[in-house]
Amino acid sequence: MEHYKEDIIMDYKTIDLFCGAGGFSLGFEMAGFKTSLAIDKWDHAINTFNHNRDNQVGISIDINEFDNDRLKALIAQNDITGIIGGPPCQGFSMVGTRDESDDRNSLYLQYVRFVEVVRPKFFILENVKGLLNLKKGHFKDDIIERFSGLGYNVTYKLLKASDYGVPQNRERVFFVGLRNDVFNDTFFAFPKGHESNSVSTSQAISDLPSLDNGDDQEIYKTEPQNDYQQLMRNNSDTVSNNEITNHTEQTKNIISLVPDGGSIKDIPEEYYTVRNYNTAFKRMDSEKPSTTIDCGHRNYFHYKENRVPTVRESARIQSFPDDYYFTGSKTSQYTQVGNAVPPLLAKQIAQEINKLLEVVQDEQLTLNV
């Protein structure tokens, strides 16, 4: 019995919907899952997704155009274990109009369609926390009702990335569904995070080149200074995606007045009204995790240097390893990083899913003996 179990090689396969640059998939791949299909309609993101994988399964397509016949052909060739992904968040976001009629709000219905056709053992849907209370919780309740109706035990939780070792105070809601004919009455228990796991911005990026001082943008400034830097460096010998943003001297002078962890409101008003600088601009706190990395990259400054962070520094704060290369223009790269699910957070969720799948596998083996 034990010998038989040891000879079994698990082959858990996933589909990643609205995959972006691939942070969600990367976390699951780190935990041993294999990606069979990744869909996003943005070419730049798919180019990045495929660039970083030998198995280039990313497809640039509108999810509405990936019809059921094509999906059935895929699952005929692949035993899909799970579906992961985060429908575009613009309609749900706490930032912006929060338009209840935004067409993008219904994109999760395409996610529902994939789950209904594929019938994976589990699914994970990620989104911004604004989804929880938009329209008095209508979207949250609808997601739970629809997937429960398909036979899934659904639970959700708002997770703070910094509690899981990601150097960023990013909050996102995760819905996890376990197929009840596989897991019976088991509901997913989220991995426990804690503020003691937090990594500060300086701990995250202090080994990267000091660009204000003219360091070569591709050469590490120091050896890894801590476990997080060692983890991010992986097998990298050089630093990629690390092009500096050139600010005017006036802008750099104004940034220089903002203290470590402070905002532009901490300096005299005369300095920032001259150029109508956004009052939300702030400098990273060297002793704390970063605020949420966004898609525009211009709302926060390096904790020490007088500039916005580079793409690589932003990717570090998102927990992408240094050998993960982002394709496209610099603006596109920033957006890809900002849209991503932090891989280290995804990995910890994947590890908990793995444990549940192993229990099911063991039970099946016992029944077959």
Rank of each mutant, 00 (worst) to 15 (best):
C19Y: 09
S263F: 01
S196W: 05
V274N: 13
G149S: 14
T331F: 10
L178A: 13
H138C: 07
L131A: 00
Q364M: 00
V166M: 11
T310H: 03
H247T: 12
F320C: 02
N50W: 12
I349F: 05
D207V: 05
A31Q: 03
L345D: 03
T366L: 01
R275I: 11
F147R: 01
I39L: 13
Y300N: 05
L211H: 06
Y156A: 01
H247K: 12
T81F: 04
P224C: 12
V115G: 12
L150Q: 11
L211Q: 03
E218M: 13
E243S: 12
E126W: 00
N242Q: 08
C89K: 06
A315Q: 06
Y271T: 06
R53W: 06
Y12W: 15
Y271H: 09
D40V: 12
Y111N: 10
I254T: 13
I63T: 09
F320Y: 10
C89V: 04
T248G: 07
A45F: 06
A45G: 06
V199F: 02
D294W: 08
K72E: 15
K282G: 10
S286D: 02
D43Y: 14
A73K: 12
N64V: 11
Q203S: 13
L107R: 00
G149I: 09
P343C: 08
P321K: 01
V176K: 00
E6Q: 15
Y152C: 07
E352K: 13
F183V: 10
F66V: 09
N368K: 09
D294T: 14
N276H: 10
S314I: 04
K129T: 10
I84W: 01
K41C: 10
C295R: 13
T238W: 03
Q56V: 06
A38T: 11
G130M: 05
E363K: 00
N241A: 01
S36I: 00
D16P: 12
T310E: 03
L178I: 13
Y334V: 06
M232R: 04
Y111Q: 09
I61W: 05
L37K: 10
A73P: 07
I353N: 01
Y303N: 09
Y325E: 05
T273Y: 03
R98L: 04
V57R: 02
S240L: 15
G32W: 05
D260M: 07
I264E: 07
L17V: 04
G22C: 07
T291N: 03
K221H: 11
R113T: 11
Q77M: 13
F33Y: 15
R119D: 10
S198F: 04
N339C: 07
K265N: 07
S202M: 14
R104D: 02
D54K: 14
T291D: 03
Q230S: 09
E269W: 07
L158K: 14
N55M: 03
E363N: 00
P259C: 13
S148K: 11
V154D: 00
V274F: 10
I317G: 02
T331A: 13
R53C: 03
N64E: 15
N226H: 06
A350Q: 00
S319N: 01
L132S: 02
